[in-house]
């Protein structure tokens, strides 16, 4: 079986850090699935994403996307990849539409393409009324939604989202999750991280639980719940594997 993402024995230590951020992490993401990357704070989720997007090199191990090595083929991979960073990566002084127009031009889309895609995506995520408002005046939830749209303009095959539902209200969260499901139905592969176990249980086809830079469990939520003794929800599985102690 071929995978959209295949990661093998990935190791990464930041300079000056006493413990490695990634300590032989392996995982595989099937095509056209929603894949949940779960783990406590500091587990190494963001580090994994940085390596997948070619932003930092791994110390050892391999990361393969679409069968291409992430270190060597980044330009080819970047075009098929959409990253939604943990922070709101937009220009606050520009309006929502101006942000999208600028990014669309950088992606070499035609003005018509930019207009159509922006309109569709903004409608889908409930921002059509705010297209001409400056992003600095958006609410937190609106910014999160635009942050996602901005990563989708070039219609990537793979969407990687780092905590897309952090600090949003129930309505925005539901909208974002249903949108991700819709993306999956269009054939996109989605990797996303979250601290919301319920949410992951609800929409993920496969989840991977990471702790201290290592994969501790991978499988479909139902599979993990039924194979781990005494667990009724994904949260139980998570606590079973990662323990109850506080992380930093």
């Amino acid at each position: 079986m071929s995978f959209a993402i295949y990661v093998e024995k990935l190791c990464k230590s930041y300079p000056g850090a006493s413990v490695p951020a990634l300590d032989g992490l392996s995982l595989s993401v099937p095509y056209s699935e929603i894949f949940g990357l779960l783990g406590p704070n500091g587990a190494g989720k963001t580090t994994t994403i940085k390596i997948l997007c070619g932003l930092i090199p791994a110390d050892s191990g391999t990361a393969t996307l679409f069968g291409l090595n992430a270190q060597q083929n980044m330009p080819a991979i970047k075009g098929k990849l959409g990253l939604v960073p943990q922070h709101i990566a937009l220009y606050p002084a520009l309006t929502g539409l101006e942000n999208l127009r600028y990014l669309g031009r950088l992606y070499n889309l035609s003005e018509t393409q930019i207009r159509q895609r922006s309109k569709n995506l903004m409608e889908r995520l409930g921002l059509e009324a705010h297209a001409d408002k400056r992003v600095s005046r958006y609410s937190g939830g609106m910014k999160r939604r635009l942050n996602i749209i901005a990563s989708l303009l070039h219609e990537p095959e793979l969407l990687i989202l780092d905590e897309p539902t952090a600090s949003v209200d129930v309505h925005s969260r539901a909208l974002i999750l249903s949108f991700l499901e819709e993306c999956r139905s269009q054939g996109k592969t989605i990797v996303y991280t979250s601290h919301q176990m319920e949410e992951a249980e609800q929409i993920c086809d496969t989840v991977c639980i990471v702790d201290e830079g290592k994969m501790v469990a991978q499988g479909s939520p139902q599979e993990l719940i039924s194979t781990t003794s005494g667990c009724r929800r994904l949260e139980d599985v998570f606590l079973y594997h990662t323990g109850h102690s506080l992380r930093d």
């Binding site: 997007c53 932003l55 980044m74 330009p75 970047k78 075009g79 990849l81 990253l83 960073p85 990566a89 937009l90 990014l103 950088l106 992606y107 901005a150 990563s151 070039h154």
Partner: peptide, 8 residues
């Protein structure tokens, strides 16, 4: 970061 992810 976002624009640095756009190739070329």
């Amino acid at each position: 970061l976002r624009v640095s992810l756009i190739p070329g």
